[in-house]
């Protein structure tokens, strides 16, 4: 590739990331917002966790770029492969969200002490790097539309390094849009907000689980 075309690709990747950023925001919102609300309060913790999340998301992007390159431009339009990947990623996302939503009930939790109650919500695991990385990676390889647009474009480039650079820049463009999520730190953290976020995460896990399962079942039945 000559210099002008590299420069054009750089700008194209950045512009594409910036332009599709709001879509990424909406697409990742159901995962990121509840998770950020579950996190302990404080800018430092939140920005650290968001950085880990974004780094893992970048890893997901780069992995996908490698696969896209390896498979040529086939993956974005090869529905059979996409359906399996989509279904599995949704299921994994559901499991990850559910883990953070439900947690593991402790024997002496408040809910357990309350006797004959209709539901018991255990103590959520303290969100750490693993959680941020898992969710970031899964949203990274989740075949969201902006991601596929970038995948198609990257697969048309001349070499694997060029495709990877394209994805990194595309990622940088979209990452700018994630900064507002830090503003969730303004929401005063109290047990009620954390519980709301956990229940919401459980509901969203149900949705992703349903989506993943129905995609896989449809795939098995109709093919």
């Amino acid at each position: 590739m000559n210099l002008p075309s590299i420069s054009a690709s750089v700008w194209e990747a950045l512009a594409l990331g910036l332009a599709t950023g709001p879509i990424c925001l909406a697409s990742c919102g159901p995962v990121v917002v509840p998770w950020m609300l579950i996190l302990p309060n404080g800018w430092r913790v939140r920005s650290h966790q968001l950085t880990v999340f974004l780094a893992a998301r970048l890893m997901g992007y780069l992995l996908f770029a490698c696969v896209a390159w390896w498979a040529g431009s086939a993956i974005p339009h090869a529905w059979s492969g996409r359906a399996w990947a989509f279904g599995c990623v949704q299921l994994l996302l559901a499991i990850a969200l559910l883990t953070y939503a439900i947690g593991w009930p402790k024997t002496r939790s408040c809910a357990a002490e309350s006797g004959r109650r209709l539901v018991q919500i255990g103590v959520a695991p303290q969100p750490g790097r693993t959680g941020a990385a898992t969710l970031g990676f899964l949203t990274g390889i989740n075949l969201c539309p902006p991601f596929l647009v970038a995948g198609v474009r990257a697969s048309q480039l001349g070499s694997l390094p060029a495709a990877l650079v394209f994805f990194v820049l595309f990622f940088a463009g979209t990452a700018v849009w994630f900064a507002p999520f830090l503003a969730l730190g303004f929401v005063q953290r109290n047990p009620a907000i954390a519980t709301v976020a956990r229940i919401a995460a459980a509901l969203l896990a149900c949705y992703y689980g349903f989506l993943g399962a129905s995609t896989l079942i449809a795939r098995i039945i109709y093919v």
Partner: peptide
């Protein structure tokens, strides 16, 4: 008679989930 008061938070969680989805 005894209902876990945390059920009061479910509508907020549903609101958050449906707005995001």
């Amino acid at each position: 008679r005894r209902i876990d008061p945390r059920f009061r938070l479910v509508p907020w969680a549903i609101l958050l989930a449906i707005v995001l989805l």
